[in-house]
């Protein structure tokens, strides 16, 4: 998957778990917590969809590496898929 596709995929997942976010306003480099008051349940849901979509496992301590679109993309690029 190229970078642009991965970014679009992650944006789609983000707005699926948080439909009250307008995808047009998402800044790719900014922390979700600062940008949209992301709480622990939002992050949990985002991590759950990443796991289910990309077939990877995410350790609890790595949740914080998913806290922006760019960080999540970086994390996934460095992680071989489980399936």
């Amino acid at each position: 998957m190229n970078d642009e596709k991965l970014t679009q995929r992650l944006l789609a997942l983000l707005t699926e778990v948080a439909p009250d976010i307008d995808p047009a306003t998402v800044r790719l480099d900014r922390d979700f917590r600062d940008q949209f008051d992301f709480d622990s349940m939002d992050l949990f849901n985002f991590a759950t969809s990443i796991v289910q979509t990309f077939g990877v496992d995410v350790a609890e301590k790595d949740y914080r590496r998913l806290l922006s679109i760019e960080k999540a993309a970086e994390y996934l690029r460095n992680k071989p898929a489980a399936s």
Partner: peptide, 17 residues
């Protein structure tokens, strides 16, 4: 909680709340 979550996939984990 850490021990519970460490052995479970993300969808089955719990949050502190």
């Amino acid at each position: 909680l850490g021990a519970w979550n460490a052995v479970r996939p993300v969808p089955e984990r719990l949050l502190p709340i």
